[in-house]
Design a protein around this nucleic acid. Sequence first.
RNA 1: GCUCCCUUCGUCUAGAGGCCCAGGACACGGCCCUCUCAAGGCUGGAACACGAGUUCGAAUCUCGUAGGGAGCGCCA
Length: 465
Amino acid sequence: MNAAPVVTRFAPSPTGELHLGNVRTALFNLLLARRSGGRYVLRIEDTDAARTTEAHVDGLVADLRWLGLDWDEGIGVDGAHGPYRQRDRGMVYGPLLDRLLQQDRAYPCYCTSAELELSRRTQLAAGRPPRYAGTCAQLDASARAAHAASGARAALRFRIPAGRMVQFDDLVHGPQHVDTALIGDFVIRRQDATPAFFFANAVDDSLMQVTHVLRGEDHLANTSRQLLVLEALDMRAPRYGHLPLLTGADGAPLSKRNGAQSVRELRESGYGALAICNQLFRLGHSCGDNSTLTLAGMAENFELKHLQRASAHFDPVQLRHWQSLWVRSLSPQQAQAWLAPFLPAVLAPAQRAALVAALLPNIVAAGDVAEWLPVVLGGELQWESDARVAVERAGADFFRAVTGALTDEEAQLASLRAASGRKGAEFFAPLRAALTGRLHGPELAPLLKAMSPALVRSRLGVWIR
RNA sequence: GCUCCCUUCGUCUAGAGGCCCAGGACACGGCCCUCUCAAGGCUGGAACACGAGUUCGAAUCUCGUAGGGAGCGCCA
């Protein structure tokens, strides 16, 4: 598009199922790129071998694809900056790590986790920030050799320059500055030789030419570390923007405990991808348009200046609203495809179409069809007491009359009404009650079309005597 | 403990000194429509955390207080 295209990325860690907070981050990065005709990259941060599983990688990719959040470059999509899984990028990290070591911007650390833990606890108890004490910071060559000779494997720590002020302009929060005196030397390569987050994440963004990073606010306080690493390597840093966290209704970070569902769960309970995206688009980002937007529409409306700085509560009720709008926007064909997994497999096409047509106006979540299936298809009715009263009040004569108007063809509401000699609620209420066991529900005419003539006859017939 | 971030209706948000005795959306109530429910239309109640200060004027600027959150990991 222009000389400096926007490149964004989503860099999840495959240690669990994709949840809404992640999806929003992915969505915003995608939209930021799309808005300006830039590129959006998907990188998998799987350096934590213990928690990473291939199932999670597959799930992540499947969820993102289902949501329609397709990437221009990344896992499964060839690009010029791969590989896109960090576990495959060892050859990229090695030389950079060596350089930092040679330039003394990093040093080997032989401290054990027990020692580090003790140090942390001591500092905390003394009311001090728990930072690396610098035990190995000044080891000379012979001391290092001695450690190495004893078989100890070193982690590599980044040496924080003293007395510096790291400054950056956050895309969301504005100018930030951090005194390096407040930062402890941190690990950039673990003892097992795998790269650590602050290093790999920063370096990959730079290498992949990422220009804008939108990520969770939990990274704000640590951004200075990544900036320092890139500076030491003389690499270009992206611009960072920190999105407010998504919380549950209780204000605590979104989790299973406060009702957060994974994308997989949402999908399986019949939520539409676009409904989810529309809801997320308005969480931490404002949009004057209250209609359901496509991803392209969202991209047009996405503005960094419309990003909120305060955390947002995820409200399932609002998701339901977007879901409702989405459902009402479905064509009959789309509605049938959407509902298919929730309907009995053996259903004649015509009956399926009639069923969907009848129920759709009253459905929000796809699972809502479940309660109507026995009603329409001929299962046991769950009688509401009011409905029973309405049926009894109508009397056997009413049902004898309407049953007389039934044919073996599809039941015609108009002829039943004519036969009953009644109109309005006097006619509909007992009919609805006898057919469905309740007084509320989808419009009766399409409902009747969806039910088999035999079922209608038997439901009405029982009330004649 | 230290550092950083945040604070407008119940919720999501508009608002970048006068257009705001604060607008929209969801939710909730009422009315209309209607065989009921849903949808739709109209309508109602509902908020600038608190306290100082700057200013002719503050939701908007400054400081403080309170509350919430995050970070300080060989997790990401």
